[in-house]
Design a protein around this nucleic acid. Structure first.
Lengths: 157, 157
DNA sequence: AGTTTTCCTATTGAATTACTAGGGAAATGT
DNA sequence: ACATTTCCCTAGTAATTCAATAGGAAAACT
């Protein structure tokens, strides 16, 4: 009965961290999967699969061979954290496996739908606005920073 | 590669809906598990387990026998949706199975921690403020309602 | 040719999820 | 006292997902 709720999977976390390494490397340089795995402590073969998703999602381009590796397909300030999570891990928020708009509630639960929608909108507002460039440069938008600066935000429940 | 991200489990959804039925029934009346299950279309035996969690979490009180059933342990306007989810389903937000404050990142991913904290703070702000009474009466706080009223919040991604 | 590195498919073990089954314990009605 | 109702508890299970591994084929470079 622990550790559920709204959770971000290892896959999503790894994907974002890998993308951040690429962002930090610049738009020119390309990094090898092995180097990213070592830098972030991510299992190498697992990461390869994730990088494949990022490539198929158009966020990353790759090259094989000796001078190969991965680099971002677009400037780091044009890729939101939400983009990375969606490509690697599916919809940002879902309830019972489906996305909020597909739900239907009855009786006193009817207003649950707009509530989930509001939660999703709020999550989107943050993760859709913060880019790889923001995080890699450790310069989060003031709006986000002020949320994280509240000491209460760091307490358990 | 679909349907992950940040998700609310069937368990959490069922728990909230059950609590809403209790809230709608008033502080006096008590409802039987079977009645709640029927009203909300929740598998009866599964719901019994969830109601047990709510009871152990102090949100609900129960009585057995002919006139038995469940009712809220406190007024509906003093129980937040977040309370119900935490009791039935664990921490509101977790990353890779652990709660944000226990994470540690390095290199260009360092600012990921304050980001997750900000996301969590934002989710808390909504789910910690909206009560069973709000939802059961279909009167969400203006702040939340305005988020849900934006047509963009209802579009897919 | 030979090395490097991405790319693809398949498999695995463990955990989680969403249930189901069966019966015991307490309260109530007759 | 007895039967009925309803909660309560333990256990089990089938399906899925999660996180990771294995092995090699395809492409790029030296």
């Amino acid at each position: 009965m622990d550790n559920r709720g709204m959770r971000i999977s290892a896959r999503a976390d790894y994907a974002v961290r890998a993308a951040l390494e690429l962002a930090a490397a610049g738009d020119e340089a390309s990094l090898k999967a092995e180097a990213i795995a070592a830098a972030q402590g991510i299992p190498h073969k697992f990461l390869e699969g994730i990088l494949g998703d990022l490539r198929r999602g158009g966020l990353v381009v790759s090259r094989r061979g000796g001078k190969g590796g991965y680099r971002l397909a677009r400037p780091a300030d044009s890729i939101a954290i939400a983009d990375v999570i969606r490509v690697a891990d599916g919809p940002l928020v879902s309830v019972r496996g489906v996305r909020p708009p597909e739900l239907s509630y009855c009786g006193p639960a009817e207003s649950l739908l707009p509530l989930w929608i509001a939660v999703r909108a709020n999550v989107r507002k943050i993760l859709g606005e913060v880019t790889l460039a923001h995080v890699a440069a450790a310069k989060l938008p003031d709006e986000v920073l002020s949320l994280a600066e509240d000491p209460e935000a760091w307490t358990n429940p």
